[in-house]
Simulated scan of single mutants.
Amino acid sequence: MRRSDTLALAGTIIMSCQGVLFATGPIFRLYAPEITAREIPVAIGGWAIASFGPILVAAVFWRWADRKPKGWLLHLLLLPCLYALLLAGWRIMGSTVVDSDFDSTLGAPIMPSLLSSVVVIAVYYSALAAKQMARRQSRS
């Protein structure tokens, strides 16, 4: 297992634990009465897209960039892809509650997903910088 895969697995485990904490926490109880049984899978799907999507996309882009001659393009495309995943998940989750902009809890349902995206960006580009520095040091 590569180091990038280990980081992706660790991120997935952390986000899963965060999801469990949110689902059993007091903020979820604010939205639980509004969500019908048919909307629960939609809300979970939106949360999964916004939370796990960045981890999956970063892991896939990292592997593809190593195999492609123009891998730098994938590194640049990561940011718009992560933003699109965050917006898509937010819209899907927002479609299941009456207060779709999450004003009553200051955006609490989307905050773990936003944190996931920020952490993925920081780790991804830090690893990319470290890889480039190591490559330059090995040349000299």
Rank of each mutant, 00 (worst) to 15 (best):
1 M>W: 03
6 T>G: 09
6 T>D: 06
7 L>N: 09
8 A>G: 11
9 L>V: 14
9 L>F: 11
10 A>W: 07
10 A>C: 12
11 G>V: 05
15 M>E: 08
16 S>R: 03
18 Q>V: 13
20 V>N: 00
21 L>E: 05
26 P>T: 10
27 I>S: 07
27 I>L: 08
28 F>A: 10
32 A>I: 02
33 P>N: 08
33 P>T: 03
37 A>C: 04
37 A>M: 14
39 E>P: 02
39 E>V: 01
39 E>K: 14
49 I>A: 13
50 A>F: 07
53 G>A: 08
53 G>E: 07
56 L>C: 09
57 V>M: 15
58 A>V: 06
62 W>L: 03
64 W>Q: 07
66 D>W: 00
71 G>Y: 06
72 W>T: 14
76 L>M: 13
77 L>I: 09
79 L>G: 05
80 P>L: 10
82 L>T: 00
83 Y>P: 00
84 A>I: 06
85 L>C: 05
85 L>S: 04
86 L>P: 00
89 G>H: 00
91 R>Y: 12
94 G>Q: 03
94 G>C: 01
96 T>R: 02
97 V>S: 10
98 V>N: 06
98 V>P: 00
99 D>A: 08
99 D>E: 14
100 S>G: 09
101 D>M: 11
101 D>N: 14
102 F>I: 02
102 F>Y: 13
102 F>T: 02
103 D>C: 03
103 D>E: 13
104 S>K: 12
105 T>F: 13
109 P>I: 01
109 P>M: 04
109 P>A: 04
110 I>Q: 06
111 M>E: 04
114 L>R: 09
114 L>P: 03
119 V>C: 14
121 I>W: 12
121 I>T: 15
121 I>Y: 10
122 A>M: 14
124 Y>N: 10
129 A>E: 06
130 A>W: 12
132 Q>G: 04
134 A>E: 01
135 R>C: 01
136 R>A: 09
140 S>F: 07
140 S>P: 12
